[in-house]
């Protein structure tokens, strides 16, 4: 197809105007003015400086950006911040209570369930979602239901061990129970 002459191409639409978006992030209400094209992931990383949530592909293919929205794990790269207006977002930074680590965080350190650490916040948030869902009881079920979180360092066996340990101490929430 012959390329259009520059002069014939329609002028591109200007960047979208910001709109107010209110998110409850880790228990704190935050109102941002974001262009609608800002994903939840970029809102967290670029506008709230919560860089614990990672960008590994930006296309829902790796799970590094996993956060909990209203308690459920999702890929924050594939939703717009505006679409989550009014919702409760929990990121890796929100799992810690004061100085105390979440049992998953403790278990990940103990079992060396990470190497480079880049997928780790997503793994931990995903595991928190997994435990809340209450669908995994065996190691194979953990493996399957954690397969949306790639770990290129290959820490999978230790991730499974860490989740197995944390599962014993973290009770699934009632509505997630089978």
């Amino acid at each position: 197809m012959a390329p259009l002459k520059a002069s014939l191409r329609p002028a591109p639409a200007p960047p979208p105007a910001p709109i107010p978006v209110t998110l409850n992030v880790n228990g704190v209400e935050r109102t941002l003015h974001l262009a609608p094209w800002t994903t939840l992931l970029d809102a967290l990383r670029l506008h709230l400086d919560l860089t614990g949530t990672k960008k590994g592909c930006d296309h829902g293919q790796c799970g590094a950006c996993t956060v909990l929205v209203d308690g459920r794990r999702i890929n924050s790269c594939l939703t717009l911040a505006a679409m989550q207006d009014g919702r409760k977002v929990t990121t890796i930074e929100g799992l810690t209570t004061g100085d105390a680590l979440h049992p998953l965080q403790e278990a990940f350190i103990e079992h060396d369930a990470f190497q480079c650490g880049y997928c780790t916040p997503g793994q931990i948030c995903s595991a928190a979602g997994l435990i809340a869902e209450g669908k995994a009881t065996t190691d194979d079920e953990i493996r399957e239901l954690m397969s949306g979180n790639l770990c290129r360092c290959g820490a999978y066996p230790n991730i499974v061990a860490a989740i197995r340990q944390a599962m014993a101490t973290v009770a699934p929430k009632a509505e997630g129970a089978p």
Partner: peptide
């Protein structure tokens, strides 16, 4: 020995190349 940088990595406090501003 558990990783000395483990706490940073599991809390989201390890900062990578795109996370400085």
């Amino acid at each position: 020995v558990s990783r000395v940088d483990g706490r940073k990595k599991v809390t989201g406090n390890a900062h990578y190349a795109a996370e400085f501003t």
